[in-house]
């Protein structure tokens, strides 16, 4: 939006809400839309102060901590979360080093050239305007062979800034680290690993799709799954 087209009388509320898929859409700071004005103002001031500090010190960890704390506060539910009355639990069927593990990431990772939305699938930036379609859609698994290197992976996800995963897939899809740990004898790895886009119909995911994925893993003699949320 040009300066001429931008309303000059916008309120602070409009400004903070614009981070949530609006004029200032930013997946790292979209939580500002959920905060009261005063809290959002404090967060912005604290982040800017941390940016200034980091410019002098180079201490990125301090800046990350400030943004992380803001994200945690920004996404806290309005009501306390009640755990389910029954939670499943399966103990290891054998020593861990004898178990076969598959990685499943919700980070929207897939192999370059194997876009789950087809060869003309949207870019990361284009996916943001499709957020509602994603949230109504049925999740699909992208299969990623165990020997796939990070250079052959990419990511797209309308719920977070997947450019991070494009730069370093291990930030949400740590298959290379699992290969190292398997080489050290910590675990055995399945032949196939999986990515999907977590911004999807949660009801379909839980009620329809995830049980099929579990059967898929059981059919391949997978003992354990490492799940990565984003």
């Amino acid at each position: 939006m040009t300066d001429e087209a931008r309303p000059d009388s916008g309120s602070f509320e409009e400004f903070r809400r614009s981070f949530y898929y609006g004029d200032h859409a930013d997946m790292q700071f979209k939580f500002l839309a959920r905060m009261p004005d005063a809290v959002a103002a404090d967060v912005i001031a604290e982040v800017l102060a941390a940016v200034g500090e980091t410019l002098d010190t180079g201490d990125l960890d301090g800046l990350r901590d400030v943004v992380y704390r803001a994200q945690v506060a920004g996404y806290l539910p309005e009501e306390p979360v009640t755990p389910p009355s029954e939670i499943p639990f399966t103990p290891p069927p054998a020593p861990l080093e004898e178990c076969t593990l598959a990685l499943i990431s919700a980070g929207g990772v897939f192999v370059v050239g194997d876009d789950p939305m087809g060869p003309d699938g949207p870019s990361q930036q284009d996916s943001l305007v499709l957020i509602n379609e994603f949230l109504r859609g049925t999740p699909t698994l992208s299969t990623i062979p165990v020997d796939t290197t990070n250079e052959r992976l990419t990511a797209r996800h309308p719920g977070y800034d997947a450019r991070s995963a494009q730069r370093d897939p291990s930030a949400v899809f740590p298959l290379d680290h699992l290969r190292d740990l398997a080489a050290d004898g910590r675990i055995r790895l399945a032949d196939e690993h999986y990515g999907f886009t977590g911004a999807t119909s949660q009801r379909r995911l839980q009620k329809e799709v995830a049980p099929r994925w579990a059967e898929h893993l059981a059919d391949r003699a997978v003992d354990a799954a490492l799940l990565v949320a984003t």
Binding site: Q28, Y68, Y160, A165, P174
Partner: peptide, 13 residues
Amino acid sequence: TPHLMGRTIGPVG
């Protein structure tokens, strides 16, 4: 993990 959204495993790099 105490990591930013989209970097659940750790910072890029």
